[in-house]
Amino acid sequence: MKKFFFALICTFLLGAAFSQSAFAQDPTPPTDDEVNAIAKHIYCPVCENTPLDVCPTEACRNWREQIRSMLAEGKTEDEIMQYFVDQYGDRVLGAPPATGLNWLVYLIPPLVILLGAIILFRALKGWTQPKQAEAGSGAASGGLSNQDEYIQKFEEELKKRK
């Protein structure tokens, strides 16, 4: 995970270096598409859950212009994002940064799903094993109550995962 973030940061820095030099050489003002490409990843601090590139309010229009002027100054996407985070908090990001309590948002769903999968697989394994024993002994009716216990156990475990 750390390596991944390191690679990510390197990519950003590299991209930043290139884009900066590109802007330094190129005097044309940033296009709407360049502004939107960044605004897309910033969430409107006022209207919740609306990305800045599609938000129709006057405030968001001004924020887009701010992105434009920052781009014209040669700021990178990273710097612009950081500026908005500093000004308005983490809520401008589409998903919470993976720090502190925010780790929970990424950890809980896979953990719960994994738990559910484990319970399901263990229960399913529980059925198939006595079935083999049953087949080996050849006593089909004798295995019935035995298996019912497994199903009961399985259903109990299903219940627990809720």
Binding site: Y43, G94, A95
Partner: peptide, 20 residues
């Protein structure tokens, strides 16, 4: 639920949006 939990414990509002 997470934005509420985050606001409750850290006072910081976060967005859990489409990327997530």
């Amino acid at each position: 639920m997470f934005p509420l939990i985050s606001e409750l414990f850290t006072g910081q509002k976060v967005t859990v949006g489409p990327p997530f």
